[in-house]
């Protein structure tokens, strides 16, 4: 199933994910497509958390203004804002575990219909570690996954059960893919919206998980 799939591109997925964010929210964005979400928050008053110890994460610095003491969780140089605060890692994960962060937007390798999430290791391949992903999915108010609907072989990444080691059990609330938006509900996944030019039947055909 190598045929070009219709639907949203990376930026359109990020833009759709940004619609999930409401004024006043404190939010943690993962690496990859989730990072692009920051480009689409518009006028909304959103504070980005970087779990290495910062609230109010700003954009990348201008060339020549990089500060080795100021990086994000992806170890990239960033900048601060007028609202920024810094704190240690125990405090940072205290606010994550304590449910103070309204939402995390993360990438994933697999999501199961019961909300199980796998995004940290593939057995037999290089294991780099879970970083803060397990803490985030266990602690934040709402977990939103942004990922391609299928893998590079065309197989569904929305499964009846995850095959990879879990990052969290029953933690995912909403999934935004290139084909549409799905919620984890009792009994499986519910289609909330279809991407432009994609039908519900096409989503069903591309999804292994139960759609209710």
């Amino acid at each position: 199933m190598a045929a070009e799939i219709k639907g949203w591109d990376r930026n359109q997925m990020a833009a759709r994910a940004a619609e999930e964010l409401e004024d006043g929210m404190y939010v943690n964005l993962g690496i990859g497509i989730p990072t692009l979400v920051a480009n689409y928050v518009g006028d909304k008053d959103i504070t980005l958390q970087s779990e290495n110890g910062m609230l109010g994460m700003g954009p990348f610095p201008f060339e020549g203004e990089e500060d080795p003491d100021l990086i994000n969780a992806g170890k990239q140089t960033i900048t601060e804002l007028a609202r920024t605060s810094y704190f240690d890692s125990a405090t940072s994960f205290g606010m994550i575990r304590g449910g103070k962060i309204a939402a995390a937007i993360l990438g994933a390798m697999e999501v199961a219909e019961n909300g199980d999430l796998a995004n940290w290791m593939i057995p037999g391949k290089l294991v780099k570690g879970m970083g803060g992903a397990m803490d985030l999915v266990a602690g934040v108010g709402r977990v939103i996954v942004v990922m391609d609907h299928t893998n590079k072989h065309g197989d569904s990444k929305l499964l009846k059960a995850c095959t990879l080691p879990l990052t969290g059990k029953g933690v995912v609330d909403r999934i935004i893919t290139n084909l549409g938006v799905l919620d984890v509900v009792d009994g499986g996944l519910r289609i909330v919206a279809c991407a432009d030019g994609v039908s519900e039947d096409e989503i069903r055909a591309a999804t292994e998980a139960t759609i209710v």
Partner: peptide
Amino acid sequence: EKRIEQRTTRKREDA
């Protein structure tokens, strides 16, 4: 030394 692991910047005209 304070080495930087991932040097990321934006261009002035992006501002």
